[in-house]
Design a protein around this nucleic acid. Structure first.
Lengths: 182, 182
DNA sequence: GATAATTGTTATGACATATATCAAATAAAA
DNA sequence: TTTTATTTGATATATGTCATAACAATTATC
């Protein structure tokens, strides 16, 4: 049930920079040229049915659309998600917000720095545990988040139109299944 | 299982969380502390129905699984897709392969360098247009790709089991709709 | 033949993300 | 209590992805 010796060989080959030549017949340049049916579109059929590939492309499209829409707010998806989670969980620790979003603590520091610099979020030293920072939105942060939520609802509606009746809900449900199975 | 019914409504509702907010008295630290109901799980309800967020998490899960599975091949998703497209389009130009995969030409150079260093792919100067490089797989590249394809089929089957009957096909179709609409 | 466009390449910067380490604070163990 | 270990936020750092500008060689266009 293991991978197979051919593959092992190929992997081994990688270590050696190709010194010893194999008896493999070398194709002529003409044959190579001929192989590429010049001009036509490439054959991508091997990828079009793959979950990972199609998911990635779709996610990139949605994020690009998001970034376009949220340019007036100067919010990227990650920043929006941070504001949203802080707004729904005011006073929680920095590390809790970060962990909930799958963001490493070190990387979350700069994100919060930026949001704080823009006057959208605040850190407050906890009285009960002076190591931790309680995080919450400022008034400006709340206002921006509310406006962003409205725009986000608009995107969701537009995506729903693209996906057809029930399509958006189905897509979300299927994606969640994958995430839950991880 | 919650299929995300009435997500539109939920999003609308969340867009206006608290209608008549008071003129914003500054909260005390104690109130902030109290606000974070310490210990409990965070409220992520604002994100769970969002297409972009759920798509991203699902895509990351699938890619992580891919990387785990393909560790014996030492192939990341992008490398696999390159091998696959080269294998189905031998002799095509470097720039064509890159463009088909949405990879910038400059970034594709290092990728091909690596595949060539490992003896999986080859560049050959075209005779008709000596600017371009015709790209194709080596024998070792073909063997590795075939083994990788088998593993990929296994992943697809496993994802299909997670997604239920018809779920995988539905997810791919919906994702493709989004990509096409971009 | 002069000019423009294409191809692969290099260099570079922006950005996201992972790990190791640290000081301060707290928790746990002795 | 004293000592040790853990947690929290932070810094530094390495890596990886991705985009743009610029260049030489080649080809296309005028």
């Amino acid at each position: 049930m293991d991978v197979g010796d051919d593959v092992e060989d190929a992997i081994e080959t990688r270590a050696e920079p190709r010194r010893g030549r194999r008896p493999a017949r070398r194709r002529t340049i003409d044959e190579i040229e001929e192989a590429g049916e010049s001009g036509g579109a490439l054959d991508l059929s091997g990828l079009t049915g793959v979950v990972g590939y199609t998911l990635r492309r779709a996610q990139m499209m949605v994020f690009e659309d998001f970034i376009r829409r949220f340019a007036p707010f100067d919010l990227k998806p990650a920043q929006y998600s941070v504001l949203l989670v802080i707004g729904d969980n005011p006073g929680r620790k920095q590390s809790e917000i970060a962990a909930a979003l799958g963001i490493q603590r070190p990387n979350f520091v700069a994100m919060l720095d930026e949001l704080e610099r823009r006057g959208l979020a605040e850190r407050t030293r906890s009285t009960t545990d002076r190591r931790s920072h309680a995080v919450m939105l400022t008034e400006a942060g709340r206002r921006l988040l509310d406006a962003a939520k409205a725009e986000q609802a608009r995107q969701e509606a537009d995506l729903g139109a693209i996906l057809g009746p029930g399509g958006r809900e189905a897509l979300v449900a299927l994606a969640k299944r994958l995430t839950a199975a991880g």
